[in-house]
């Protein structure tokens, strides 16, 4: 845990920006939304999710002790299980337990 004051400030910023985004359409977009905003709203969700996946895996290293094998296996398992069953909770739970087994017992 980091400094509680900075933690509180971070939470305040995240909460504030989230609320701002939710309120924004009701405050300003009464008469029409700029096309740029519409375009970004269409395409960004896809790009951001890709960014977040990479962000989660930022600490892996091919040359490290495990050669990023647990991460690669667990991501593949999660993705394939989800493509097969389309059950979000099952995919997350199985992927996480699988990864924990890999890093605790196998590697």
């Amino acid at each position: 845990m980091i400094d509680p004051v900075h933690s509180l400030l971070l939470i305040a910023v995240i909460a504030g920006v989230t609320a701002l985004i939710r309120f924004l359409p009701f405050l300003v977009f009464h008469k029409g939304t700029p096309k740029t905003v519409l375009y970004l709203g269409e395409v960004l969700p896809y790009a951001i999710m890709g960014m977040l996946v990479v962000y989660c895996l930022k600490d892996i290293s091919i040359t490290g002790s495990t050669h990023a094998i647990p991460e690669a296996l667990a991501v593949a398992a999660t993705a394939l299980l989800h493509k097969w069953k389309h059950n979000t909770l099952l995919s997350i739970l199985t992927g996480t337990v699988f990864y924990m087994v890999l890093v605790q017992l196998v590697f």
């Binding site: 999710m49 493509k83 996480t96 890093v103």
Partner: peptide
């Protein structure tokens, strides 16, 4: 150890879904 992967898994799932 490794429980952080829940976040990765969540985003992988959403990525596949999208």
């Amino acid at each position: 150890a490794g429980i952080d992967f829940a976040m990765t898994a969540l985003f992988v799932v959403i990525f596949v879904e999208q």
